[in-house]
Nucleic acid binder design. Sequence first.
DNA 1: GTCTATAGGACGATAGAC
DNA 2: GTCTATCGTCCTATAGAC
Lengths: 185, 185
Amino acid sequence: MDTRERLIESTRELLWECGYVGTSPKAIQRRSGAGQGSMYHHFRGKSDLALAAITRSAEELRDRAEAELGGSGTPVQRVAAYLRRERAALRGCPVGRLTQDSDVMADPTLRRPIEETFAWLRDRLAGVLAEARAAGELATALDPAATATALVAVLQGAYVLARAAGDADVYARAVDGALGLLAAH
Amino acid sequence: MDTRERLIESTRELLWECGYVGTSPKAIQRRSGAGQGSMYHHFRGKSDLALAAITRSAEELRDRAEAELGGSGTPVQRVAAYLRRERAALRGCPVGRLTQDSDVMADPTLRRPIEETFAWLRDRLAGVLAEARAAGELATALDPAATATALVAVLQGAYVLARAAGDADVYARAVDGALGLLAAH
DNA sequence: GTCTATAGGACGATAGAC
DNA sequence: GTCTATCGTCCTATAGAC
């Protein structure tokens, strides 16, 4: 892994752990093993580096979601597989976390990949739920778009509750609750 | 409103907008109109002031939730009233937001009010759902505790999605989806 | 109770040698 | 491409006058 790559990966980790405000160029240099000059040679500054890191994290989230939502099984099975997939509950969502960072949200460039990722995810999940409804797996009374938004919200909120409780099991419990609600429809 | 009070209220606003790392004593002084010496006279430092602010925000969240969950109507009506209550969707949850702040979560003193608040909320909501089930308003197959956790997660996640989209309607849509799932049970 | 002065360090970035 | 030196600013906190 070359220097540029190490800088991006270190920034991804730090943004995940500390957020944008809490991540300093010095900390990035320390973790990546790159020097001051090296960092500013490869990137224009903190926000430029953050953009590269955020873009990659967003792509990764989409790829992983697509692996399950576009996988095999009935529509409801694929939704369940996506919801149940193991996640680092206590670390939080590397993309959703940035949503709470006003410096990120105030910058249209940094914000775009986050906005696009969740728009895509809600829409993709709504599509699978529409499939489920068409196949008779899901009540016709349920609106796919609203249901999809609620399910994505459960995942994002589950991170919050797990961190608040200091207990990863809370994440699983929220998912159980969501699947329970989905089950009888 | 005296100086001490203005300091606490200003800190509450800033923690809400900028998080703990993003909130500086200087910014608190600017917003409250209190001087340097004044702030350090009333509080030992940043974390001491943050504790007062967080404790108050946590109490407020509990009081507001209790107003609806312990209000009038059938259990399911009370849950719906709680979920549908108007919130500042784009500002995020003043308590849940702090969950993403590693400095806050690393400090047991600052963390306790957050942990207790969500533990109480999940439990309180589970109680109302148990009432609903006993009254035949809700399917016996649904576990009150898991369902309550999922519903609280929907609210917390709805803030994330609304901020990501830059659109408060997304919050309402997540709530609609959750109530839709709850309806047919 | 509130003020100003000051501390020692970290922040984000730039300059210029090698 | 990477290094060290340096900049000006802000950070959190303390000291001591009023």
